[in-house]
Computed example of a mutant assay.
Amino acid sequence: MSPLSKIQLHQIFNKLDKNGDGLVCTDELMWLLERIGVRTNRVELERFVGEEALNAVDFLFFYEALTIGGGGSLVREKYDLETRDEVLEMDLRRAFRVFDLNGDGYISGDELRVALSGLGLWDEDCGADCEAMIAAYDSNSDGFLDFHEFKDMMLFDSLASP
């Protein structure tokens, strides 16, 4: 089976989100997993997911977690890593890949605009604002965010928030 594209995953997410609240609950995930032949129970799924519902970004991470392990079991823990820093690094790399649409290792203003729009987090008039967001954290002034600049941005924003 070929990996699904981000567009296909967003289409699946939108079809699962029957009430249009921007979340897919564990009942909807259970239904999907049963249809694709993944056997689990509610307790295992909730432990694996770590929440009662997933937004679009978390749904992408959920798909990655299932496919990276080669279709591994939901019985294992969501993250089998030794330190919190490793978990944070892994989460940031996954988030980076959501925005790095062409997979070149950099996030451009256009990629940021498309990804935010696709996630329903920004409207079509964000072009100049996306460039300003990139420029604010672009430490080498190349017009793009590499992973380390993205990480700095995410960690700064999380530290600045109460």
Rank of each mutant, 00 (worst) to 15 (best):
I107C: 01
Y106S: 04
R35H: 11
I134L: 09
L54H: 04
A132V: 08
D17F: 14
E34D: 12
S2V: 05
V49Q: 13
E44C: 06
T26W: 03
D157Y: 09
E82T: 01
A65G: 00
K15G: 02
D152K: 12
K18P: 00
K151M: 12
D100Q: 09
L88F: 00
S117R: 15
D27K: 06
N140P: 01
A128L: 13
S158R: 15
V114M: 14
F61S: 02
C126P: 00
R94N: 13
N140G: 05
R47W: 07
E86R: 06
G22E: 03
D58Q: 15
F99P: 00
A56W: 00
E44H: 13
G109I: 05
N19T: 13
L33S: 03
L33P: 00
L23C: 10
D17W: 15
K15V: 12
M30C: 03
L119I: 14
V98N: 05
L60H: 12
L101N: 03
L101R: 07
E52Q: 15
F150V: 04
I12Y: 03
S117Y: 05
S2Y: 08
D138V: 06
L9Y: 15
G71R: 03
D104C: 00
Q8P: 01
K6W: 09
G71L: 02
F96K: 05
A65Q: 02
M1D: 10
D21T: 08
M154K: 09
K15I: 12
V75F: 14
Y79A: 07
D123C: 07
E77N: 08
N140R: 07
V38A: 04
K151P: 01
R42F: 15
D146R: 04
A128T: 11
G20S: 02
R47E: 12
I134Y: 10
A95E: 01
L45K: 09
E86G: 05
G118R: 03
G120R: 13
L92D: 08
E89K: 07
D152L: 10
I134R: 04
R94T: 06
V49I: 15
G22T: 03
D157W: 08
E64M: 14
F96C: 04
S158N: 09
V49F: 14
P3A: 14
G70R: 11
F13Y: 02
I68Y: 14
N19M: 05
F62A: 10
R35N: 12
A136N: 07
A136Q: 14
E77R: 09
A132D: 12
L116E: 02
E149Q: 12
D146G: 09
R47M: 11
K78E: 11
F62D: 09
E77P: 01
C130I: 03
L74H: 04
S158T: 10
R84A: 12
D58V: 00
R97Y: 10
F144S: 00
L145M: 08
A53T: 01
G143A: 08
V49E: 11
S141P: 00
M1N: 06
S108H: 06
N102S: 07
G37C: 07
A115G: 01
G109P: 06
S158V: 07
C25V: 07
K18Q: 15
V43T: 12
R76N: 10
